[in-house]
Nucleic acid binder design. Structure first.
Length: 266
DNA sequence: CGCAGCGCCTGAAGGC
DNA sequence: TGCCTTCAGGCGCTGC
C-alpha cells in the first residue's frame, strides 16, 4: 500500500514531467470518488506537492487537484489509455502523454478544491506534520501522542501526530524501538526514539524506491525494493531478527499488527 | 469533540 | 477443479 516513501517516489518521478504541463482532456470512472478528475480540463499544473500520503497538484487557476492512492492505486505515464478495466481516471496532457490512475480496489480518491481549502477532506484538514519535514520534531510528536489514549499504532495510522505512516512503516518502526503496537502511553524518551525510528525507516524505504508487498508500482511500472529489507511486517511466525523468538500478530481495530513478544513487551 | 464501528472494494489464498 | 470464505486495510462517514 502506498505510504510516504511510495507516494514521494511517485511525486519525484512525475514532477519534472507534470510541472508546466496543461491538461487537455480527462476521463473518469463514474464513481464520485473519481469524477473530479474532469474538473481540471484546461488548467496548467504549476507544481506537484505531497502532504503525507496525499499528492497535490497546484493549478494555474488557484485550485488544487488532490489524489490519494488508497490501497492499490498507481499513477503512470503512457502514450494512450491502456485497455484495462481498473483504470479509474486519465488525463491527456500537452505533449501527447496520458497520466493514468489505476486502482483495483477503488479505495483511492480524487478531489479538486480551491487551494488550501481542505474542509471537505477531513484527514487532510487535520493532517499532522509530514514525517520528513522539519515540523516533525520529537517534542511536538510527544505532545501529540500524549493528547490521546488510543493505541500507539492507531495513533500513527490516524495521520494526526505525524503524516505519511501506514501499517508497513508503523510495524517496522515499532519493532525497531521495541514498543508494543497496542501500548497506549509512551514516555518522552520512547517518543523521541520512535520519532527517530520513523524517519529512519521512511528514509530507507524511500532510498529503496518503496515497498511492493503486492500492488505498489512506481511511475515506470516497476516494483520497489524495500520489501527485501522488512524486519517485522509480513513476518508473523518467523523468528525475530534480534532475539529469535517467533514474531506474533494480532488484530486491533481491524488491522493486523505484527510484533515480537519479547522485544516489544506490552 | 473524540473516537469506535462500519462500509467501501476486489484479487489472492486457503479449505473442503 | 471449483465454489466458498477469509483476508488485506486507508479513509470517510455516522452516531454515541
Amino acid at each position: 500500500m502506498p505510504e510516504l516513501p511510495e507516494v514521494e517516489t511517485i511525486r519525484r518521478q512525475l514532477a519534472p514531467y507534470l510541472q508546466g504541463c496543461s491538461v487537455q482532456d480527462a476521463c473518469s470512472h463514474p464513481s464520485e470518488k473519481f469524477t473530479p478528475a474532469k474538473d481540471v480540463i484546461g488548467t496548467t499544473i504549476q507544481e506537484l506537492k505531497r502532504k503525507g500520503k496525499y499528492l497535490i497538484a497546484r493549478l494555474d487557476d488557484n485550485r488544487e487537484l488532490i489524489v490519494h492512492l488508497g490501497m492499490t492505486g498507481s499513477l503512470t505515464l503512457a502514450a494512450a489509455i491502456p485497455d484495462d478495466p481498473y483504470i479509474r481516471a486519465s488525463w491527456h496532457l500537452e505533449g501527447h502523454k496520458v497520466l493514468v490512475f489505476r486502482d483495483i480496489r477503488r479505495f483511492g480518491r480524487i478531489r479538486c478544491v480551491p487551494a488550501g481549502r481542505y474542509d471537505t477532506i477531513p484527514t487532510l484538514a487535520n493532517l499532522g506534520p509530514d514525517a520528513l519535514s522539519d515540523e516533525f520534531t520529537p517534542e511536538s510528536f510527544y505532545h501529540a501522542l500524549r493528547n490521546s489514549r488510543r493505541r500507539i499504532s492507531t495513533q500513527l495510522l490516524s495521520q494526526r501526530p505525524v503524516a505519511g505512516i501506514g501499517n508497513i512503516y508503523s510495524t517496522e518502526a515499532l519493532w525497531m524501538v521495541g514498543i508494543h503496537p497496542a501500548k497506549r502511553q509512551i514516555s518522552r524518551s520512547a517518543a523521541a526514539g520512535l520519532h527517530a525510528a520513523l524517519i529512519k525507516v521512511l528514509r530507507a524505504g524511500l532510498s529503496n524506491g518503496g515497498t511492493t508487498f503486492r500492488d505498489y508500482r512506481n511511475v515506470q511500472g516497476s516494483k520497489g525494493k524495500h520489501q527485501n529489507a522488512l524486519t517485522c511486517y509480513g513476518r508473523s511466525g518467523q523468528p525475530c531478527l534480534r532475539c529469535g523468538q517467533p514474531l506474533q500478530h494480532r488484530t486491533y481495530d481491524s488491522r493486523t499488527l505484527t510484533f515480537c513478544p519479547k522485544c516489544q513487551p506490552c
